[in-house]
Amino acid sequence: MQRVNMIMAESPGLITICLLGYLLSAECTVFLDHENANKILNRPKRYNSGKLEEFVQGNLERECMEEKCSFEEAREVFENTERTTEFWKQYVDGDQCESNPCLNGGSCKDDINSYECWCPFGFEGKNCELDVTCNIKNGRCEQFCKNSADNKVVCSCTEGYRLAENQKSCEPAVPFPCGRVSVSQTSKLTRAETVFPDVDYVNSTEAETILDNITQSTQSFNDFTRVVGGEDAKPGQFPWQVVLNGKVDAFCGGSIVNEKWIVTAAHCVETGVKITVVAGEHNIEETEHTEQKRNVIRIIPHHNYNAAINKYNHDIALLELDEPLVLNSYVTPICIADKEYTNIFLKFGSGYVSGWGRVFHKGRSALVLQYLRVPLVDRATCLRSTKFTIYNNMFCAGFHEGGRDSCQGDSGGPHVTEVEGTSFLTGIISWGEECAMKGKYGIYTKVSRYVNWIKEKTKLT
Rank of each mutant, 00 (worst) to 15 (best):
A9R: 15
G413W: 10
I275T: 05
K446C: 04
K347G: 13
H400V: 12
W261H: 02
I429A: 12
G351N: 07
S182C: 03
K347Q: 15
K457R: 15
V243M: 05
A397H: 01
E73I: 07
C252S: 00
T194A: 13
F221V: 08
S114G: 15
I40K: 10
E10A: 15
E86F: 04
D212Y: 12
K168V: 09
Y330Q: 05
S70W: 04
D212V: 12
G413Y: 15
P375G: 14
N104L: 00
N393G: 14
C178A: 00
V228S: 11
R404L: 15
T16A: 12
C335K: 00
E208H: 14
F121R: 04
A192F: 08
K459V: 12
V183D: 08
Q185Y: 14
A9Q: 13
I443L: 12
R3F: 11
Q90L: 07
E27W: 03
D410E: 15
N104Y: 03
F424G: 01
E98V: 10
A233M: 08
F360M: 14
F176Q: 06
V257F: 02
R379M: 14
S25H: 04
E142Y: 04
S99Y: 07
A397C: 03
R294N: 01
V447L: 09
H314K: 02
E323N: 10
E82S: 09
M65A: 14
S11E: 05
R358I: 06
T290K: 05
S11H: 13
P239D: 00
L383N: 10
L367F: 12
V331C: 05
K89F: 05
S182L: 05
K39L: 09
P177D: 00
L425E: 00
C28V: 03
Y115M: 01
N59E: 09
K68W: 11
E418K: 09
Y441R: 03
T218M: 07
T186S: 05
K247P: 13
P172N: 05
G432D: 09
H267W: 03
V154I: 12
N304P: 02
A265L: 02
G94M: 10
G272E: 06
V4S: 14
L24K: 03
E285N: 06
G363T: 11
A173M: 13
K146W: 08
P301L: 12
C252G: 01
I443V: 08
V248Q: 13
N203M: 09
N328I: 01
R379F: 10
S329E: 15
L244W: 02
S49D: 15
Y450S: 01
G50S: 06
R162M: 09
E98R: 10
N258A: 04
T85I: 07
W261A: 01
N452W: 05
